[in-house]
Design a protein around this nucleic acid. Structure first.
Length: 438
RNA sequence: GCCCCCAUCGUCUAGCGGCCUAGGACACCGGCCUUUCACGCCGGCGGCACGGGUUCAAAUCCCGUUGGGGGUGCCA
């Protein structure tokens, strides 16, 4: 076991888009490093020139920055450290620990005995050496494999804690064997994190599942919410307070408390947590957060900041994903799309009478939420209806749907002319339906 | 096949031998609030996979069974 200040590394292979599982691994490494005041190194495992691309490296960097995970020192690129790995393989060849096999070099695993290591999450793990095949340490193109780079770099960089996904558990004895063959007298502390699985309880895969961090960002998940949610996958605070500031998570987090069982990714819970973060924003903060999504709409491109800041508070506590926000306020800036079901439900008698009288009242009333509210309440009462019922036809006529932001506040923003025009349109539609005998 | 890991409400978790007639969160179902929805509040449903041990005492420790999952590449 290594002593001294903890030094961890996050070591992604840049062979694909940044992945939820990758992010969780990065986060747990980071949380632990920050928790104990240790160091956090970023190491890019680009030992396979065919698969690693600079685009993927940039996306990883971008994603880590989005999540707010920072690193100590410059990133280490394994592709630039080939000489170190070559020397190790040459040495093993010299010592007879490795041998040539059709142009590749394999490490000779002892035929008997066991290779064991201590894992914070799983306790002691032992592998019979007989179950480990002689594995390739140098490809026939001359490049060293992941196992070598891993063992050499963890040793060379003074890594004390190796924290990674359980899918790598079976490679650990190989790395341990190589590290020992490098004359290392100690081993890092391992922590193999439980896998994040899908509804079928299978490891998240980019083929089957939506695993791209970028996709969640684009749907309108806040990075802080994503980090908070990810921290809850395989770990839980002892005081049951799940949604909390990152500083508290850092304080409470410990690898020793990480669960061993796989955790299912639950979009519902992520969304709920995101909603909490959104609600915690003040009006200005929320307006700033939704702005990019609004700007992406045809009607939102030239929206002035004042309007945006007036509209945003109407939907803040109704929004769980920022990407859902534009749809809720589109009726204010474009002709409403009438939902047929909502229309049918809302326009039964006495809807046309209510619309008729609302139209008259609204054409003269002071254009404020309080006044419109009072007017429609009075109209509803004359039909023996509570406001909840009476507002329905007006809501569908002016917004297109039965549900939406507060009606009178919305009407104020819509403006009298547009509101009256929509009431007229609805009335005309009702009249023609009645004439045709429907 | 072989090797490894795992097992508390539907889901994420708290629990690390007595505080547990198992707590919280999401989801779901009621109710309240109410200008719809949402928010908020109140309440409900729902779980220690099974079988053996150990112990005065087990969700907690041990063994087995069953059931999941991961790995088994000149990918990482």
């Amino acid at each position: 076991m290594l002593s001294g200040a903890p030094r961890l590394r996050f070591a992604p292979a840049p062979t694909g888009l940044p992945h939820l599982g990758t992010a969780r691994t990065a986060l747990f490494n980071w949380l632990y490093a920050r928790h104990c005041g240790g160091e956090m190194v970023l190491r890019i495992e680009d030992t396979n020139a065919e698969l690693a691309t600079t685009a993927h490296i940039e996306q990883i960097l971008e994603t880590l920055e989005w999540l707010g995970l920072d690193f100590d020192g410059d990133p280490v690129f394994q592709s630039q450290r080939a000489a170190l790995y070559d020397a190790a393989v040459d040495r093993w060849l010299d010592e007879g620990r490795a041998y040539l096999d059709d142009g590749a070099v394999r490490f000779a695993v002892p035929g008997d005995g066991v290779t064991a290591f201590d894992d914070i999450v799983r306790g002691r793990v032992e592998f019979p050496n007989a179950s480990i095949d002689d594995f390739v340490v140098r490809r026939s193109d001359g490049s060293a494999t992941f196992f070598v780079a891993n063992a050499v770099d963890d040793l060379d960089l003074g890594i004390t804690h190796v924290v990674r996904g359980e899918d790598l558990l079976n490679t650990t004895p190989k790395v341990v064997l190589l590290r020992a063959a490098l004359d290392a007298t100690d081993m890092p502390t391992f922590a193999h994190l439980p896998l994040i699985v899908n509804k079928q309880r299978k490891k998240l895969s980019k083929r089957r599942d939506d695993v791209s961090l970028i996709s969640y960002r684009d749907q309108g998940v806040l990075p802080a919410a994503m980090v908070n949610y990810l921290a809850l996958l395989g770990w839980g605070p002892p005081d049951d307070i799940e949604v909390r500031p990152l500083s508290e998570i850092i304080e409470l987090f410990d690898l020793a408390d990480v669960n061993a069982a796989p955790a299912m990714f639950d979009m519902d819970k992520l969304t709920a947590i995101n909603g909490e973060y959104l609600r915690a924003l003040d009006d200005a903060g929320f307006a700033a957060a939704v702005e990019p999504w609004v700007r992406a709409e045809p009607w939102g491109a030239d929206l002035d900041a004042a309007t945006l800041s007036t509209v945003a508070p109407l939907i803040r506590e109704r929004t769980r994903l920022l990407g859902d926000a534009p749809d809720r306020i589109a009726f204010l800036f474009a002709e409403p799309q009438i939902d047929p079901d909502d229309w049918a439900a809302a326009m039964a008698a006495p809807a046309s009478d209510i619309l008729e009288r609302a139209r008259t009242a609204f054409s003269e009333a002071e254009w404020s939420a309080a006044t419109l509210h009072a007017e429609l309440r009075a109209i509803g009462e004359s039909f023996g209806l509570k406001l909840g019922k009476a507002q329905a036809p007006v809501r569908v006529a002016t917004t297109g749907r039965a549900v939406g932001p507060p009606l009178f506040e919305s009407l104020v923003l819509l403006g009298r002319d547009a509101a009256l025009a929509r009431l007229d349109t609805a009335l005309a539609k009702l009249t023609s339906a009645a004439d045709s005998g429907e």
